[in-house]
Design a protein around this nucleic acid. Structure first.
Lengths: 138, 138
DNA sequence: TTTATTGCAAAACGTTTGCAGAATT
DNA sequence: AATTCTGCAAACGTTTTGCAATAAA
């Protein structure tokens, strides 16, 4: 149980709690979970955990650089592990599925924006809406 | 005052009201306004207009294809005219500025997603986060 | 023992809804 | 006159906050 981020927490004066471990596990398991979904997942193990603890924990974990969030359409923000390989999100309007693809797909875009506008793209936060292969044929 | 969309409205059994005109004007003026901002803008001319009317009107205007909305980061959805040339949004994390650029910048991305994943990109809804030229040098 | 963290309840925020009165047709 | 539209107030779902009790250090 001596996970590396435990020391990280203590070093900064924070404490390691069951709730914090469970939230991190839920984020890992769900891959793209909203706070609500993460709460439900956590409560499968520990019923008493309150939604406000989920919010506070997510904020802390994000601040520590352990998780990140993205905005996928209308829905509440979704959280994922920061240690996951960087990826671009493809959101299908048909089925709502979220696909992770390599940031390499955005190379052309990134280069153009850099050259033409002097704009530095945050590729990790890129979300592309559209229709996936399955939903186009259906 | 015989604007083309007036007939469009009446033809569908809707009515032309001052509120609806004001909302459309506010959307035009603000370029990327949230419902709240649009409400404030409208109220500069007509004080009594209620926020719920703003929401209902935006929904209607969007349904009629006169306006569109996009999700720009944390903030509530922002609305813009549908008749504006299609564009990709660049959102600067530094100053919060929203830039509109030609969809052509996304050609490389669109092609790769099409070929590699069979994914049909909705370019008009593409938002890219990053840092603009000004904020990079500052 | 100290003090960060939690659960709870209440507040805050953006958005939606029901309804009676006002306005457009 | 008929019916859509508006303003108001209340409800809603999500997120934040204050606080006393709990638990990690």
């Amino acid at each position: 149980m001596a996970e590396p981020w435990h020391e990280e927490l203590r070093a900064r004066g924070y404490r390691v709690t069951p709730q914090r471990q469970l939230v991190l596990e839920a984020v890992t398991a769900l891959r793209h979970g909203t706070p609500e979904e993460i709460c439900t997942e956590v409560q499968r193990t520990a019923r008493g955990v309150n939604i406000s603890t989920i919010y506070r924990t997510l904020e802390l974990l994000e601040q520590l650089g352990l998780v990140k969030h993205t905005h996928l359409g209308h829905k509440p923000p979704t959280y994922h592990l920061a240690t996951e390989a960087d990826h671009v999100h493809l959101v299908c309007r048909g089925c709502g599925e979220v696909y992770d693809v390599t940031p390499a797909v955005a190379k052309g875009l990134v280069d153009v924006l850099e050259q033409e506008y002097g704009f530095e793209t945050d590729v990790q936060h890129l979300t592309v809406y559209g229709r996936c292969r399955d939903c186009r044929t259906t």
